[in-house]
Every structure is written in C-alpha cells, then in structure tokens.
Design a protein around this nucleic acid. Structure first.
Lengths: 136, 136
DNA sequence: TTTGCAAATGCAAATATTTGCATTATAATT
DNA sequence: AATTATAATGCAAATATTTGCATTTGCAAA
C-alpha cells in the first residue's frame, strides 16, 4: 500500500462522516480537483478505503451503493422499505450481538456499518400489518 | 399481483433453499424451460420474490448478488474476507438482537438474511491480527 | 542516485443491474 | 363471452460496477 492521491482527496471530500455519497457523486466531486481521473480508479480507491476501514459501503436500496466516512464511532442504519427514510442506530445497540457472534463462531467481524431493512412506525400504521413483506 | 410463470419456475429452480445462485445462473437455467425470457423480466421477478419474502438477496462480495430460497427457517451468514468461506448462522443467534432493535425503534424489520463479513479463525491465525481490516 | 518491484492509474471492454415505454396477458367484472 | 384494469413481459438504452492488460509512479534497497 502506498499513498494514493485519489484516496487522499476522496477522504477530504467525504469530510468527517455523516454523508452518504454515491460513487458517481464522489467521482464528479473528485474531477473538479483531478480533472483526468478515471472511473475505475475511483472504484478501486474506494474499495481500498473500504477494506482499510476508512469508509463504509452500503446498499440502502437506492440503485447505487453509498459510501460514508468512518470516524471511529461505528454506527448503523435502519431503512424503511416504504418511505425510504434512514434512521441511525448506535453501535451500543449492536456491539453485544457482534460480540456474541464472534465468540460463538470464533470469528473476527469486520462489518462496521450494518443496514437493516424494515418499516418505520408511521408506515406500519399507514399500510397495515397484513401487507408487510420481508426482504433480504 | 398475479401468478407469474417466471416466478413459479424460478421457485422450482431454487428448490428448497441452501443454494446461492446468481441472477445469471437463474437466467440460464430458466431459459432452458422458457427460451425467449428476457433478462429484465428475470430481475423484476426476482425483485418481487424478494419483496414477498420467498427469496433472499445478498451481496457476499463475489461481484454479483446471490439469491436463495427462503424455506421458513430464517438463517444468516458469515463471510470470511480472506478465504471467502461462508458459514451459516441460525436465526436463534439473531432473533434477540432483531427484537431489541424493533422495540427500541418501533420498527418492524423485514431483513431476513443477514450477511456479516469478517475473518474465520484459521485466517485470523494465518494473517496475524495486525492486518485485519474492517469493512462495511 | 540509480534500479527494480509492486502498487496505483488509465483505458477499453465485459459484466451486472435498472429503467422507460410499448405490448401482452391474467383475472375480475359486467 | 366480452370488457376492462392492471400486472407481467419484452426490448432497448441508461446506469452501475468489475476486470484484464499496459503503463506510470512511489518507495525501498542497492
């Protein structure tokens, strides 16, 4: 691994977390500073950043994957399949579960950004429980 | 919703669970029975089957998403980022966590097939803990 | 400073997935 | 049985993502 200019600028662009950006958004932003940069270079830099834990990647059901800066405070999300609203879940609600899985399976988990799909309270009431379908 | 021949045949193809098939594998299998069927028809039928809980869809990091038949016994997976081995996790190890999240956030979860990435015991020893990176 | 390896990049093509729109067909209603 | 509304399908194009291969470049060793 070597210092990659693309990686560095991506991290600057993504700031200190909280924003979900698509590869395309990152690409366009990047090109204003590094005009000639190639799409596959961006995807590969993103992959390295995800693998080293500096970014998370998630499919929140919007067609394109979204990336987010990891700032040390792991967090997770609930995504409503009906209204598409995204809610944050603190790591404290997840850490015990992860610990149990790690112990039970002698695994070291790397997932740092869990996405759970479901229905928020409002939408449950709106559509009636009969219609609530399950999903991956 | 109406009985779709494509959906029915897909369910037959996928049997009673346990196999992870890509859209492409399903598509090729399907074409031997329904020669003219279109790729986007397959994707849309798969989407409906996932939404109605008959299939699960997961990205286990192999480039293409994989689908699996849901047979009533929810289960989940651990995927080793190093050797790519996939381990099954019973729903009993997950159900408490899901319940807590549902209560805490007044949510009705629909996710029925959780994928957690990490490192299996063998690979942890093989590569040494220093190199273990985190990932989405 | 030069040399050489491996990582990063660019480019083009392959692959994967989604979407808009026109057409077809199923099932309920008349 | 004919009519109708709407779900399912086909088709083509747009979009998203990955990959192979050639080239460039940063970093470390000589």
């Amino acid at each position: 691994m070597r210092t990659s200019s693309v990686e560095c600028i991506i991290l600057e662009i993504m700031g200190q977390g909280s924003d979900h950006l698509t590869a395309q958004e990152i690409y366009h932003n990047l090109r204003s500073r590094l005009p000639g940069v190639n799409y596959s270079t961006v995807y590969r830099a993103l992959e390295r950043l995800v693998n080293s834990g500096k970014l998370s990647i998630s499919d929140i059901g919007t067609g394109a994957a979204v990336y987010e800066r990891m700032d040390g405070h792991r967090h997770h999300h609930l995504v409503c399949l009906h209204c598409r609203q995204v809610v944050q879940v603190g790591d404290d609600e997840v850490v015990n579960f992860f610990d149990t899985i790690e112990n039970q399976h002698a695994y070291k988990l790397a997932t740092n950004h869990l996405i759970l799909f479901g229905y928020c309270q409002e939408c449950q009431e709106k559509i009636g429980k009969a219609d609530l379908s399950t999903c991956s």
